Amino acid sequence: MREFENPDHWDAAARHYEKTAHPFTARYAEAAVARISLGSDSHVLDIAAGTGALALAAARTGAKVLATDFSPGMVARIAATGHPNVEAKTMDGQNLALPDGGFDAVFSIFGVIMFPDWRKGLAEMARVTRPGGHGIVATWQQRGAATFLLLGDIRRKLFPGRDGMAMPEAVGVLSDPGNFAREMILAGYRDPRIEPVTHDYELDVGALDDPDTLFGMSPDWTSLNDGEKAEVITEVRQMAGERSVLPIPSTALIVVAQR
């Protein structure tokens, strides 16, 4: 089992993820919510919800949201927000314990793309979307985003020929908009519309003083020896120059499709 397919990995990372990744992914979640109309009569499902960036954005429209994740630790972080419009449950997105057609909008923001059987995840999304409702999925482009993107680029520069972190299969397939549209249709949706959305991940250069906390979730970091890690840190500092924040432009593809 790959690390990102293990709920224990995400349980351990939940608080760190909420602090570091959640504010960044929330920008894409808000972009996804803005692409459809939601209101107080809307029923929304968030699959592989993480710490709830999408669920909370959807709830702010007045919608009633069920947030699901296979990690109890992630679900606990969502529940701790206490938002009255959000219910959080531990659930496998590849086998949802939910009836057919129960939701007006079903989202997965950088979630279903991590599934071992991501096509089953997309099909489950379609199954629980009501006819006329929407399925919305966000994926990273092939080289990833934020610190993962930065580390991959630096590894290729400093250590050419070395294998880097293997991205999930779905990221490679869905990076192509034509493939993305085709997979949504095969899952049971229609009329997919795909748009790129780019935001800068703002890397606090001061965080390089504790690089294991900053980069520790990435195999591109943990697979390096101490000398190689020092080379990476030197390269990042050189890229930043006199700046206290290093922007890392990160592009996602967001698809909106109808059931």
Rank of each mutant, 00 (worst) to 15 (best):
M1E: 14
F4H: 12
E5T: 05
E5A: 11
E5F: 01
N6A: 14
P7K: 13
W10N: 14
A13V: 06
A13Q: 12
A14T: 11
A14G: 10
R15S: 15
H16K: 01
H22R: 11
T25M: 10
A26V: 02
Y28H: 13
A31F: 02
V33S: 01
V33F: 04
R35P: 00
I36R: 01
I36M: 05
L38E: 10
L38P: 04
S40L: 11
S40N: 09
S40M: 10
D41Q: 10
S42K: 04
D46W: 04
A49P: 02
A49T: 10
T51H: 03
G52F: 08
G52H: 04
L54I: 06
L54V: 11
L56M: 09
L56D: 06
L56F: 08
L56K: 01
A57T: 07
T61F: 13
G62D: 07
G62N: 04
A63Q: 01
K64S: 15
K64V: 09
K64D: 10
L66W: 03
A67W: 07
T68N: 03
T68F: 12
F70A: 04
S71M: 08
V75Q: 02
V75Y: 04
A76G: 10
R77I: 13
A79R: 14
G82R: 09
H83D: 15
P84G: 09
P84Q: 13
N85T: 08
V86Q: 10
E87F: 04
D92F: 09
P99F: 14
D100R: 06
G101Y: 04
F107V: 11
I109M: 14
I109R: 09
I109N: 15
F110T: 11
I113E: 00
D117A: 11
W118E: 12
K120V: 07
K120I: 02
K120Q: 12
L122G: 09
L122K: 09
E124C: 06
M125N: 08
V128D: 14
G132D: 15
G133M: 11
I136A: 08
A138W: 05
W140L: 15
Q142V: 14
R143I: 06
G144D: 12
L150R: 00
L151Y: 02
L151K: 03
I154L: 08
I154N: 01
R155I: 12
F159N: 09
G161P: 02
R162Y: 03
R162F: 03
G164R: 02
P168W: 00
E169V: 00
P177Y: 13
F180M: 01
R182W: 11
A187V: 13
I194T: 10
E195A: 13
E195V: 13
E195T: 15
E195H: 08
T198V: 02
Y201T: 06
D204L: 07
D204S: 09
G206K: 07
T213Q: 06
P219S: 13
S223M: 12
N225P: 01
V236D: 10
Q238I: 07
E242D: 10
E242P: 00
R243F: 00
L246H: 00
I248T: 03
P249I: 03
S250K: 00
S250Y: 00
V255L: 12
V255W: 07
V256N: 04
V256I: 09
A257M: 07
Q258P: 00
R259Q: 15
